[in-house]
Each structure stands twice: as C-alpha cells, then as structure tokens.
Design a binder for these strands. Structure first.
Length: 358
DNA sequence: TCTGGGGTCCTAGGACCC
DNA sequence: TCTGGGGTCCTAGGACCC
C-alpha cells in the first residue's frame, strides 16, 4: 500500500499578499477583480480568513464582496508573483520526495512510501514539511495523508486551515459516509442535483448504490463515483506531466456587437497565447475560439490546421476566421477566448537548464 | 449577488478508411 | 432493396477543479 500526501497551500494568493504586506494581515483581504465601486464584472479569486468570516469566498462576484465589506483591502491578481512563490514551495516539497506531481499553482501530490515506514511516521514527515514551508517561505499550508489521491485530498480539506490530517484506508468509508455527496471530489452542482433526485444525499448512501444503475445513468463516471464513494481511488503520481492546451480569455467591460472591437480583442489575446506557447516551447495543431454571449451561452469553434505550427499569424488569422464564420451577428458578446491544442514539443529546442554547464 | 480565467477529462455524432 | 462492423480522427459541448 502506498502513502500519498497532498500539500495544499492555504488561501494561497491572499497569503502571498499578506507576506509582502504584513500590515494587511488582520484586515479583510480580497484578491480578485477591481470592484470599481461595486459595478465591476469580475469575481473574488481568493480571500483571507478575516474576509471569509464576513461571508466572502472564492468565485463570489466581486460586486457582492464589495457590498459585504466596502472598506476591505481589494488587490488585483498578480499571477507572476504567485507563480514565483509557488516555485519556491514546489522545490521545497520536491526535496521531501521526488515522487512528486504538481496539480495546480498551489497543490501537489507526493508519494512518500519510500520515505517513511508507516502512517504515523508520515504524519511527522508532513509536519516537518509544513514547518519548513512556514519557516523558510513564510506561507501556511495543509497536508492530507492517505493511501490514495482521493483520500489524501479529502483528508487535506478536512484538515484546513493550517493542519495535517491522516485518514487511513480502513477509516475512509467511515469518514466519507456522513458527508453530503457534493463534498466528494469530482461531484459538482449538476451531479449532486442528479444524485439527490435519485435519492442519494450522502456519500454513505451512494456507497451502497447499485453500480449498474450508476453506470446506466452516468457511464464510466458512474463506476468512478461508486469507487470514490467507497474511498477507493488512484495512487499513481505522474512525474512528467505534459501540458495539453494553452488559452486566454477576456470579458468585455460591456457586451458588444462591434466586430472591430471583438477582432482587436481576438488579436490581442492571440498574441498572449502565442507568447505562452513560445515560452512553453510547444507547437500547436488546433486553434479554438470561444464566444460567450450576453446570456452566458457559450460556443466553441475549432479548426485543425493540418500541421504543427509555431506562428502567431496562424493563431490570429484562424481565430478571426472562425469568429467571422460562426458568430451570431447582432448577438451581444460578453467574452471572447482563444486556445491552442494538439500540442507537441518543439523540435531541436531544449529547455535552458538542459544546457547548464556542469 | 450576478456570475473570471486557466485548465482537464469525457461524451457523442459524423467523416473516413479498411 | 435497403443497406456491416470496427477503428480513428475531428468537432462541439458539458461538467468539474483551482
């Protein structure tokens, strides 16, 4: 049996801001869109626990957060800064085990099976890692430990904030059983509604479901649901993960039908996508445009260009064409996005660090 | 209250090929 | 007259996560 840990940074973006602005530490701090006096269209990205006590939370419309606390500290998202902090954290985590997989800017799974003899030692190991991150970098995190990725994640959630939590395999079912289905990782609003309509309110009820009926209602996902509800899950760590797509999207400050304005935005976004693809050292084969209309309906239009490309013009020209061919004229556009996929590492190009002199 | 931006994975239909 | 089966690729949409 493996010993898997999930390291998850607590209120990461806001914690990073507190680190460079200690004066905000005791104040409600909201990282996200500029509220613009309550008229803005963005959302809360992350907020600290002082703000959470006031009812503010991630993904809440920023206008609502503003209404809840007009004199909170509102800061814009400084992604490059958080990424630099993330790199420091991830290097430290890696030093605890090379069997490591970063799953988002602030989370990583680590397989510590070879590092400790049992779960009790794993708890001590996790505490040491947590202290190291706190002392050397200054950021709080939580760590969940179990024998699968799923249960490590659930343990971590249960331990938040600033906690280390162990759930042994034999305790998984008992831990999960009373939770409402939407607390299970992978179950969102839609699936929860469907499950509740089928009579499954808790994970324990789901764990006793008839697998045949789950599969007939949800396909492969149904079988996965059953396994998850019973505390079973994957324990693999993918050490060299390859990115699958690169995209950027932008919401207009006001909905528009002005083609000139939209095309200009597509070109500007295409440029950002191009720069990111260059930075990642990948070519692409498919270009996709995403259009969100005023009523939130979304449409994707994609084109396989038939070869791997690295050209800015291939992104912007295909994106504009796809928009012109498929956009509903006179429908107000709220958001536009551009994405490239079908990626391949560029040939003859290695990362700088591969050339580092010995 | 009025809804961002960056991703992943899965499904399903149609085209095409053998 | 009434039309196989399997595999793969492409496209579009949906759900979910952070």
């Amino acid at each position: 049996m493996k010993i898997i840990m999930l390291v998850d940074m607590d209120y990461f973006f806001a914690a990073c801001e507190e680190l460079r602005h200690p004066e905000y530490r005791e104040m409600p701090l909201v990282v996200g869109a500029d509220p613009k006096g309550g008229t803005a269209r963005g959302v809360v990205s992350t907020c600290n626990y002082v703000a959470r006590k006031l009812g503010i939370h991630s993904a809440m419309p920023i206008s609502m957060a503003y209404r809840l606390k007009k004199d909170a500290i509102f800061l814009p998202v400084d992604y490059p800064y958080y990424e630099s902090m993330s790199s420091k954290v991830m290097e430290l985590v890696k030093s605890f085990s090379k069997r490591f997989e970063q799953v988002s800017i602030d989370e990583a799974f680590v397989d510590v099976t070879d590092k400790v003899d049992n779960f009790e030692q794993a708890v001590e190991y996790a505490k040491a890692l947590k202290e190291d991150i706190k002392n050397k970098i200054g950021l709080p995190c939580s760590i969940g430990i179990s024998s699968s990725r799923l249960m490590a994640k659930m343990a971590c959630e249960a331990g938040k904030p600033d906690g280390v939590r162990l759930i042994k395999g034999e305790d998984a079912a008992r831990f999960l059983s009373p939770l409402p289905v939407e607390k299970l990782y992978g179950i969102g609003k839609k699936t929860a509604e469907k499950l509740e309509s089928m009579g499954f309110k808790t994970v324990g009820q789901l764990a006793k479901a008839n697998t045949v009926s789950l599969v007939s209602n949800f396909g492969v996902f149904g079988a996965e649901l059953y396994r998850s509800a019973n505390g079973q899950g994957d324990d693999g760590i993918i050490e060299n993960y390859e990115i699958k797509s690169i995209g950027r999207e932008r919401t207009f400050e006001s909905d528009t039908t002005d083609r000139g304005r939209i095309v200009a935005q597509i070109k500007s976004i295409a440029d950002e996508v191009y720069e990111e693809a260059k930075k990642q050292g990948v070519s692409f084969k498919t270009v996709t445009v995403k259009i969100r209309y005023h009523d939130f309906s979304e449409h994707l239009r994609s084109r396989n260009i038939g070869h791997y490309s690295e050209e800015l013009a291939e992104i912007s020209e295909n994106a504009v064409q796809l928009f012109d061919m498929h956009a509903e004229k006179d429908e107000r556009v709220r958001k536009i996005g551009v994405r490239v996929s079908g990626l391949e590492k560029r040939k003859g190009q290695k990362k700088m660090k591969d050339f580092t002199a010995p």
